[in-house]
Amino acid sequence: MSVAFIFPGQGTQSSGMLHHLLDHPAAIRTLDEISEALHFDVRDLDNERCLEFTDAVQLALFAAGVATARALIAEGVRPAAVAGLSVGAFAAAVTAGVLELRDGVELVSLRAKEMAKLYPTGYGLSAIVGLTECQVEAIVRAITSEQTPVFVGNINAPRQIVVAGSNPAMDRVLDEALRQGAGKAVRLHVSVPSHCPLLQPVADLLGKRISAMNLTAPQMTYVGNVNARAMRTKELVAHDLVNSIAHGVRWHDATTVLQELGCNLFFEMPPGHTLSDLANENLSGVNSVPVKAAVLSRVLRLAQQEEANT
């Protein structure tokens, strides 16, 4: 029985998210280090105006994840494995020791800016709840076209599927999903078509940049986005970080692998509770807890109990 750290992706951001982190020296020091790398205070990115922009959102999520993970580790919480959804994977890779913090900042900044530059308007993500992956794939195949492309993106749960693509095509997919019995079909607060072939140029740029970086073997198991496999070499982690932007994320499978590795206590880095809701609803025997300042004592107590039972 072990602990896993899980890191959320874009769409979970909220105003003030970096000002509501754990008041811990390790978290404060991490935010300061990220600010030095950026040449401005990363805390300035968590207001409503800035969070309308992809680069601010992704950097803020990255900062929140790494800062909180380092605070927990400083308090003696030792994860056996890490996994991050989308941009959360970069925070997971830094926490696992594969990437230096500055390199993580550089890659996240490059990734977000290039995504926004490639598709500044007219594209995004949508979520469909209540249909299976096969059902959504069939709808997408019937609607996608060269002029208005749409793709199956993330598989967050057996019946929670994210699609990515052009707004007109996504609108048609959502309408058809509701007609076929979806309980919910909505646009997400994400303005770029993440995790589909439209973003292969961004993956290519990331691949060139990460190949010049000094990577280190992971200090804990990293579970990937694209194939949801346990990864224990720096090469495999780098490949996953680069390629996930142009491929769908098999998040439910990734959390299933965490459970199969013996992790039954997940700590979700801030902000929000989306990943914990998914785990608690879809993985029997797993307890997933969002880490917030108000529940730090409970988080540490759960971690101590888990260690005692190991």
Results as ranks from 00 to 15, higher is better:
Lys117Val: 03
Ala83Gln: 03
Ala83Lys: 00
Asp103Glu: 14
Lys113Trp: 03
Glu75Gly: 07
Met115Phe: 00
Pro120Cys: 09
Ala93Leu: 07
Leu72Val: 09
Ala89Thr: 09
Ala69Cys: 01
Ala96Ser: 11
Val98Asp: 04
Leu110Val: 11
Ser86Trp: 11
Ala112Ile: 00
Arg78Glu: 15
Pro120Ser: 08
Val87His: 09
Leu72Phe: 02
Glu106Cys: 03
Glu114Thr: 12
Ala96Trp: 04
Gly88Thr: 09
Pro120Thr: 08
Arg111Tyr: 00
Leu85Thr: 13
Gly88Val: 02
Leu118Lys: 14
Ala116Asn: 09
Leu118Met: 14
Tyr119Ala: 02
Glu106Pro: 00
Asp103Gln: 13
Ala91Pro: 02
Val77Thr: 08
Gly76Lys: 00
Leu110Asn: 05
Glu75Arg: 12
Ala81Thr: 12
Thr95Asn: 09
Met115His: 02
Ala83Arg: 01
Ala112Leu: 04
Arg78Ile: 13
Pro120Leu: 10
Pro120Met: 10
Leu72Gln: 06
Phe90Asp: 12
Leu85Ser: 13
Ser86Leu: 13
Ala93Tyr: 04
Arg111Trp: 01
Glu75Ser: 12
Ala80His: 15
Leu85Gly: 09
Ala116His: 09
Leu99Gly: 10
Ala92Asn: 11
Glu114His: 12
Val98Glu: 04
Tyr119His: 15
Leu101Gly: 05
Thr121Asp: 15
Gly84Cys: 07
Met115Glu: 07
Leu101Glu: 13
Ala83Phe: 03
Met115Ala: 14
Ala80Ile: 03
Val87Trp: 05
Glu114Tyr: 08
Leu72Met: 06
Glu100Trp: 02
Gly84Ile: 07
Pro79Cys: 11
Ala74Cys: 01
Val77Ala: 08
Asp103Cys: 09
Ala81Lys: 11
Ala89Gly: 15
Pro120Gln: 10
Met115Ser: 12
Ala112Val: 00
Ala116Gln: 15
Ala89Trp: 00
Ala91Met: 14
Gly104Gln: 11
Ser109Gln: 15
Lys117Pro: 01
Ala91Trp: 14
Ala112Phe: 00
Val82Met: 07
Val77Gly: 07
Gly88Leu: 05
Arg70His: 12
Lys117Phe: 05
Lys113Ser: 02
Val108Arg: 08
Val98Thr: 10
Ala80Ser: 15
Gly122Trp: 02
Leu85Cys: 13
Gly97Met: 04
Val105Cys: 11
Leu101Arg: 12
Lys117Asp: 05
Ala81Ile: 13
Pro120Ile: 13
Arg111Val: 01
Ala96Glu: 01
Tyr119Trp: 13
Ala69Met: 05
Gly97Gln: 03
Ala92Met: 10
Thr121His: 14
Asp103His: 08
Leu118Pro: 01
Leu107Asn: 00
Ala116Arg: 13
Ala93His: 04
Ala96Gln: 04
Leu110His: 06
Ala96Cys: 07
Ala71Ser: 10
Ala96Asp: 05
Pro79Tyr: 02
Glu114Asp: 11
Gly122Asn: 03
Val108Trp: 01
Arg78Cys: 09
Leu72Glu: 02
Ile73Val: 15
Leu85Ile: 10
Ala81Gly: 10
Arg78Leu: 10
Pro79Trp: 02
Pro79Leu: 05
Leu107Val: 05
Leu72Arg: 02
